[in-house]
Design a protein around this nucleic acid. Structure first.
Length: 448
RNA sequence: GGAGAGGUGGCCGAGUGGUCGAAGGCACCAGAUUGCUAAUCUGGCGUACUGGGUAACCGGUACCGAGGGUUCGAAUCCCUCCCUCUCCGCCA
C-alpha cells in the first residue's frame, strides 16, 4: 500500500508515477476524495467524543446525590442531539448497518465505513516504481542487461524439447498427472523426482551455508490477512486457490508466508537484515494464462520453488537487491546453463514491486528463454500493509522495513533447462556436476 | 471435538465501573557520577488518526485479542468470535 499522506501531499507525483504502470489518475482522485470524507467524519466524531468524555468526568467528581440530576440532563440533551447529528453526518448507511440510535455509535460506524472505502480504493493501487526503471508499454519493452554463457542452438543432432525427453526417459508422466488431477498436472517419476529433490537440497545448501539465509518450512496455506499483506489480495484473488470452508489461501509463492513471518512486529535494528529461504510447493490457478504454455512442465498449477526473502533497512535495499540478483545468478552459473538478466519495464512489474529483474535460462529444446527467477524490491509497500517495522538504537519511531523477494530458483523450469541443455544424441541426459553428489554420484539419466 | 484457564505497552506484569494511556520491573535513550570494560542516581521513553507550528513541540480522539451490547461513563460488567495454555478424545 502507498502512504496515504504521500498521496494527499503529492497527488500529481503519485499520478505520474502510477501512470507509468497504466493506472488511471482518476483512481488516485478517488482515494483522495474518500480520504477527505474520512477526515471530516473523524473530526466530527472526535468532537462528539470529547464532549461526552468531559461530561462524564464531571459526573464522576459530583457527590452521589447530585448525579441523578446531571444524568437526567445529559439524557435530555442527547435526545435532541441525536436527531441533529443524524442529519449532520448523513448517517443513512450507518443506521442501516447497525441497530442503534446512539449518535456516537452511528458516527463511529459511519467513520468505519468511510475508512473501509479509503482502504478499498488504496489497496488496489500498485507500488511506485524506482525512478530508474524503464517506462514501457508491455513486456516487449523489457531490457536484457546481460547474458552469461553461450546459448546452444545448433548441434550435430536434433535437440528435443523436455516433454519428449522426459517421456522417453520415463521421468515425467503427463498422462497420469492429468488422470490424477487434470490439465496442467504431471508426475515426476524415478530419476525425475530424484533430480528435483537434488536441486532442492543443493539450492538450499547454497542459500544457507554460503549466502546467509535462514531455512524455513512455512505453512502452505495462509489466512486472508497474510495474503493481503504481500499484495496478493485483494487484487489477485482469482489467481489463488482458496478453501472457502476455513478461509485458507494456498500460497502462490513462499514469498507470502516468508514476508508475512514478522507481520505486526517491531524488529530490533540489530536483527536486520533478515535473510529467509524456503523450499515450498506453489499453487496457482493460472486462469490468466489459459491456453499459454500448455505443453510440458513450464506452467503447472503446482510447482516447487526455492524462495529467498529479505527484510532490510530502507537505505540498504538497493544494494540488497543487487546481492539477491547475484545470489540467484550464482545458481544458474554453477549449473553451467546459459542465462540472461532482464530488467522489467514499468508495465511488466508485479503489483507490489518497485523494481524487478528476471533471470531467464536458455532452453534449446523448446527454443525459448525460461523465467527461472524473478527478483523484486518491494520497498515499503508490503511492509506498510504487513506492519513490519524496526526500531533504531537511537530511540526513534519505528520505521517500515523494505522487503525483497526472489526465486532461487523455480524448480520445473530449471529441470527443463537441465534436460534440454544436457541432452545427448542417444536421448540420455548428463547430470550437471554440481548435482552428482546429491544423486548418489550418478552421471547420466538414461533410458531403462 | 469436549472441559477448564487465560489474552494488558518492545518484553514481563499490576489493575473488577469514574481523575487509567494505564502502577511496577526489564530493555532502550539522555545526563550525572564512579580509578575503571560495569554499577548507581536523575530524567525521558507506546502506536494510529487528526488540528496548530518552518521546527524541536503543543492540543484532540482512539487503542488493554477482535466485534457488538449495557451505562452519563468500560481495561474492568454482558454477548459473539479468534487465539494461546492445561486435561480428555481423535489422529500422521
Amino acid at each position: 500500500m502507498l502512504d496515504i499522506k504521500l498521496i494527499r501531499e503529492k497527488p500529481d507525483f503519485v499520478k505520474a508515477e502510477l501512470a507509468k504502470r497504466g493506472v488511471d489518475p482518476a483512481d488516485i482522485d478517488g482515494v483522495l476524495a474518500a480520504d477527505a470524507v474520512r477526515r471530516k467524519l473523524q473530526a466530527n466524531l472526535d468532537e462528539m467524543r470529547a464532549d461526552r468524555k468531559r461530561r462524564s468526568k464531571e459526573i464522576g467528581t459530583l457527590p452521589p446525590d447530585q448525579r441523578a440530576a446531571a444524568i437526567a440532563q445529559i439524557r435530555q440533551e442527547e435526545a435532541e442531539e441525536s436527531r441533529a447529528s443524524r442529519v449532520l453526518a448523513n448517517a443513512v448507511e450507518a443506521a442501516a448497518a447497525i441497530n442503534s440510535s446512539n449518535p456516537i455509535t452511528l458516527a463511529a460506524t459511519q467513520l468505519a465505513l468511510a475508512e473501509r472505502e479509503v482502504e478499498r480504493r488504496a489497496l488496489v493501487l500498485p507500488n511506485i516504481p524506482r525512478s530508474y526503471v524503464v517506462v514501457g508499454q508491455s513486456e516487449a519493452d523489457n531490457r536484457v542487461i546481460r547474458t552469461e554463457g553461450t546459448p546452444l542452438e545448433f548441434t550435430a543432432f536434433q535437440l528435443l524439447p523436455h516433454w519428449e525427453l522426459g517421456e522417453q526417459l520415463g521421468i515425467i508422466d503427463f498422462d497420469r498427472g492429468v488422470k490424477l488431477s487434470g490439465t496442467r498436472f504431471y508426475v515426476l517419476m524415478g530419476l525425475g523426482a530424484r533430480l528435483e529433490r537434488a536441486l532442492i537440497a543443493w539450492m538450499l545448501d547454497i542459500k544457507t551455508s554460503e549466502q546467509g539465509y535462514l531455512e524455513v518450512i512455512p505453512p502452505l496455506m495462509v489466512n486472508t490477512e497474510t495474503a493481503t499483506s504481500t499484495g496478493h489480495l485483494p487484487k489477485n484473488a482469482d489467481t489463488m486457490y482458496h478453501d472457502a470452508e476455513d478461509d485458507f489461501w494456498f500460497i502462490p509463492t513462499a514469498e507470502v508466508p516468508l514476508t508475512g513471518l514478522y507481520r505486526d512486529e517491531v524488529l530490533d535494528e540489530s536483527k536486520l537484515p533478515v535473510y529467509l529461504t524456503a523450499y515450498t510447493p506453489c499453487f496457482r490457478r493460472e486462469k490468466m494464462s489459459a491456453g499459454r504454455d500448455v505443453r510440458g512442465i513450464k506452467r503447472g498449477h503446482q510447482f516447487d520453488k526455492v524462495e529467498m526473502v529479505k527484510l532490510v533497512k530502507p537505505e540498504t535495499s538497493d544494494d540488497e537487491f543487487n546481492k539477491m540478483v547475484e545470489d540467484a545468478a550464482q545458481v544458474c552459473r554453477r549449473l553451467k546453463i546459459p542465462f540472461r538478466v532482464v530488467e522489467l519495464c514499468t508495465a511488466d512489474l508485479s503489483f507490489a514491486s518497485a523494481v524487478t529483474y528476471d533471470l531467464e535460462m536458455w532452453a534449446p529444446g523448446c527454443g525459448e528463454w525460461l523465467e527461472v527467477s524473478s527478483i523484486s524490491n518491494c520497498t515499503d509497500f508490503q511492509a506498510r500493509r504487513a506492519h513490519i517495522r524496526f526500531r533504531g538504537a537511537k530511540a526513534g519511531k519505528p520505521e517500515l522495513v523494505h522487503t525483497l523477494n526472489g526465486s532461487g530458483l523455480a524448480l520445473p523450469r530449471t529441470v527443463i533447462a537441465i534436460l534440454e541443455n544436457y541432452q545427448n544424441e542417444d536421448g540420455s541426459v548428463t547430470i550437471p556436476e554440481v548435482l552428482r553428489p546429491y544423486m548418489g554420484g550418478l552421471e547420466r539419466i538414461a533410458k531403462t
